[in-house]
Design a binder for these strands. Structure first.
Length: 847
RNA sequence: GGGCGUGUAGCUCUGCUGGCCAGAGCGCGUCGCUUACAACGACGAGGUCACAGGUUCGAGCCCUGUCACGCCCACCA
């Protein structure tokens, strides 16, 4: 037990209690508890790269409210924290900072040490994948230290001893094991296929990582030569640079303008290549001229046309986003090609327009347009479509099953399920899991090389699970020697890594000890809660469901709680590019963690919330009020444990009202409605301070009387309950107050429950007294007199039962309102109470 | 183009399966340093519940349509 300070303050609470919780292991998961007691949370791995803003804080707080509530309910909360550190942004920073680039063909150099400090190198130094990964990990380790400090300060009650990283050994092992099992089960396959490709990062990307952006472009009308001697055929395109990649023209089968042309041949401008005119239902008569050129590949529709119409490939865009040096088969290496070869697609576009213009191939002037273009969500150049060999996980075959799982999951809010539903219904390709990057989990496969030194992709060599994790760029498959690497008849490692989602889709398995701690895993999996933001339903939530179903045949959790966005005060989504990002550090410094959490609590599940410093101020005020009221209550005489129950009707009324609050708050939190629970508790607390506390203050000072003891016992009981009700929201303040007169942590104290003994108590005395004291204060305020002004007489009228309620609190009212005399008038049919106040100064007011 | 959501005091929001003379906090105004709290308290003024129809004894809440905003998705010529 501690001491009640003279002047309570919020300063220093975060440092003091943060250290204490860590030292005491307050939030440690207890492995000894049975499965039915466990509440396991699949918490989003904290992002170390990218910009940090209050949006993160916002949703993490929501989870923490629920975790703290469940812990107080007596559950063994499994609340691990992860670091999501594998991925592209980290690679980018390492490349730029150290002036290096990864070359997976190089052997590991154990002695490699980057120069200290940033390197400004034009040509980046090539280093091996293991060396590169080492640098990435050094960088993320340092970042994680900084971030951990912040998250700790925020008061997240995660179990830091369960921390994992998505690039760490456990994660790599789980990720590779999971993949090998998919491979063995036939759910993972490789294919050579056109895929969306980011030319900056030079990697394939999956459907889920794409976003549309409106960008300026030009609509160009180009003339194709018609079969026979007919007039030119005019197509409209925004990608004239792909003319050499054109393999056909397409129109809708019902389009009368072009019906007769289907089956004939057209000739491309600039290159004179003959291409067939074909019909397909996806050709839109309303767009452009109704006649479109099919290129390999300008967009995803091209891919569909190419596949369904069995067209040849004439690819011209290379993996770095430039047109290749040599034209594809069937296209002449003429002067036009010489103009375009080697150019970026953007530059080639401009040149193609000029070429068309000078050769008369242009039909009308190019028209500036704004149109949606697909981008990789982290990229800044439009995606191209290139053909490459990639690994996929089957999704389309399992669509129905995945839809069923989505329906079996408890969604909060429920309408978020439609996001999932639509996504699964709209899937058009399997999950592309391979990435041509380096700081990720390596694909754990090797391939044999035949006698000609060619890679035999059809017979991948998988390691035994016991060897995991492996890095095929340095590890050697069983049955081979290190010297066999790259040699005809030898082997080569798969150069790629997994998509980060392929690993983070296993967070329940990684955190829960899948195949590594079977006893624990059986206790925590499937988990109870998956909190996350709605923009990653299609990725994290979806993929986790997929992996859990493939591996365990079950949903990974029973409930998904989807949080909303944080928007800026103008209700715009917060993003770095808009420059409207609010960082949590500044807010923490200015208002404190409890205040920030209070603001976050105002965001209902699934709804967007604006950054509102006003709410943070209110939260801070609430915390200070709690400290001060606790100081007052605990500063009164302590009647000890033998004081018995409160006897006064007003005291029992207050406690009975508080019991109702407890019941409501509990119900709300059971439904994960942290906002309603806080609102209820907070509202009670303020009226408790404003009315009840003021009413009984005088009596509470009386020592040695039963009435005084009753007030003091009630005050302490009410404080005890309210501190526990608010503990999930204001963990620091509540812990501080708790420590003044209680042992142990409030966060391990039992959640309050209504007392049966008070269930029948009449709540009217407090309500009636509050009304009367309000009327008295109003009278004084309207008379512009201080509140200490005496009242000569207060006459209360109303129904008899309510008058009795007032009488029960008359002594307290007299003291609090300085009322000399009370009068009562029965008005049996009145709606409520009416109080006439005669001030001692002879002035008068009525309400 | 499809879908989801939102629209209530100047601002941020509550209002559960329809009964309210419509609530809270912030902000604003007036008063007050009353022995927990002036980083405070008391009191008060603020609203055609987006719009138009409809159902009902009765609608902020239900139905239909319209408008505005946000987000998600879509084959982007």
């Amino acid at each position: 037990m501690g001491q009640v300070p003279e002047r309570p303050s919020l300063d220093g609470l975060e440092a003091r209690w943060g250290a204490r919780w860590e030292a005491d292991g307050t939030y440690r998961f207890d492995d000894g508890r049975p499965r039915e007691d466990v509440y396991a949370i699949d918490f989003p791995p904290l992002t170390v790269s990218g910009s940090l803003h209050v949006g993160h804080v916002f949703s993490y707080c929501h989870t923490d409210f629920l975790a703290r509530y469940q812990r107080m309910r007596g559950r063994a909360v499994f609340y691990p924290v992860g670091w999501d550190d594998n991925g592209l942004p980290t690679e980018r920073r390492v490349e730029n900072y150290h002036g290096v680039r990864c070359d997976p063909s190089l052997p590991y150099d154990p002695g490699f040490e980057p120069p200290p400090g940033p390197v400004k190198a034009k040509a980046k130094r090539p280093i091996s994948r293991p060396n590169f990964v080492e640098l990435c990990r050094r960088l993320t380790d340092a970042d994680e230290q900084v971030f951990e400090t912040l998250w700790r300060q925020l008061g997240l009650s995660v179990d830091w001893s369960l921390a994992y990283t998505t690039i760490g050994e456990r994660a790599r092992r789980a990720s590779q094991r999971g993949f090998l099992r998919l491979l063995a089960g036939g759910e993972a396959y490789q294919a050579e296929a056109p895929t969306l490709w980011d030319v900056t990062y030079r990697t394939a990307v999956a459907q889920a990582e794409i976003e549309d952006r409106e960008v300026p472009g030009v609509a160009v009308r180009a003339r194709f030569g018609a079969d026979a001697a007919g007039p030119d055929l005019v197509i409209e395109t925004t990608r004239p640079e792909l003319l050499p990649a054109c393999v056909a023209l397409v129109a809708h089968p019902d389009d009368d303008r072009y019906r007769d042309l289907v089956g004939t041949t057209a000739t491309t401008p600039l290159f004179g290549v003959p291409v067939p005119v074909v019909a397909h239902r996806l050709a839109d008569p309303g767009k452009g001229t109704g006649l479109a050129m099919i290129c390999t590949f300008g967009d995803l529709t091209d891919v569909i046309w190419w596949r369904e119409l069995r067209l040849p490939v004439r690819s011209i865009v290379t993996r770095d986003g430039r047109l290749q040096a040599e034209p594809p088969a069937g296209v002449p290496a003429n002067a036009a090609w010489a103009e375009l070869a080697g150019q970026t697609t953007a530059e080639a576009r401009r040149r193609a327009v000029e070429l068309l213009r000078t050769t008369g191939g242009l039909a009308g002037e190019p028209r500036p347009v704004t149109h949606p273009v697909k981008f990789y969500e982290n990229g800044d150049r439009p995606l191209e479509i290139v053909t490459s060999r990639q690994w996929f996980v089957r999704l389309l075959d399992h669509r129905e099953r995945l839809l069923e799982l989505g329906r079996a999951l408890e969604w909060q809010p429920p309408w978020m399920q439609t996001r999932y539903e639509h996504w699964v219904r709209g899937l058009h390709s399997d999950w592309l899991v391979s990435r041509q990057r380096f700081f990720g989990v390596p694909i754990p496969l090797w391939y044999p090389l035949n006698e000609a030194g060619e890679v035999d992709h059809e017979h991948p060599i998988a390691p035994d699970e016991a060897r995991l994790p492996v890095d095929p760029s340095t590890d050697v498959p069983d049955g081979y020697q290190a010297t066999d690497r790259g040699r005809p008849g030898g082997f080569t490692g798969d150069p790629d890594v997994f998509d980060t989602w392929a690993t983070s889709s296993l967070t329940p398995q990684i955190a829960g000890g899948w195949e590594e701690d079977p006893e624990r895993f059986a206790k925590v999996f499937p988990m109870q809660l998956r909190p996350q933001a709605h923009e990653i339903i299609r990725t994290w939530l979806f993929y986790t469901t997929v992996r859990s179903d493939f591996e365990h045949g079950t949903l990974p959790w029973s409930r998904a709680a989807i949080s909303g966005w944080v928007v800026d005060p103008d209700r715009r989504k917060m993003s770095k590019s808009k420059g409207n990002v609010v960082t949590p550090t500044a807010m923490l410094e200015r208002y404190g963690a409890d205040a920030l959490r209070y603001w976050a609590a105002g965001g209902r599940p699934g709804t967007d919330t604006a950054v509102d410093e006003g709410q943070m101020r209110v939260g801070r005020r609430l915390a200070i009020k709690l400290l001060n009221s606790a100081r007052f209550i605990l500063g009164l005489a302590d009647d000890g444990p033998g004081a018995g129950h409160p006897a006064a009707a007003l005291d029992m009324a207050m406690l009975a009202g508080l019991d109702a609050v407890v019941a409501d708050a509990t119900q709300a939190l059971e439904a994960s409605d942290w906002t309603a629970a806080l609102e209820r508790a907070e509202r009670f607390f303020w009226s408790f301070c404003d009315d009840y506390l003021e009413l009984v203050k005088d009596r509470a000072y009386q020592e040695g009387t039963p009435a005084g003891a009753s007030a003091r016992v009630a005050l302490r009981a009410a404080l005890d309950i309210q501190v526990r009700l608010l503990a999930p929201y204001l963990p620091y303040t509540c812990e501080e107050v708790w420590s003044w007169w209680r042992d142990g942590s409030v966060h391990l104290a039992p959640w309050p429950e209504p007392a049966p003994a008070r269930a029948a108590a009449d709540r009217r005395p407090l309500e009636a007294a509050s009304q009367v004291i309000a009327a008295i204060r109003r009278a004084k305020s309207q008379a512009r007199l201080p509140l200490r002004t005496p009242v000569a007489r207060a006459e209360v009228s109303g129904p008899p039962a309510w008058l009795d309620a007032v009488r029960a609190a008359e002594a307290d009212l007299a003291a609090a309102g300085r009322v000399a005399a009370f009068g009562y008038r029965e008005r049996p049919h009145a709606e409520g109470l009416d109080t006439r106040v005669e001030l001692a100064t002879a002035e008068e007011a009525t309400t």
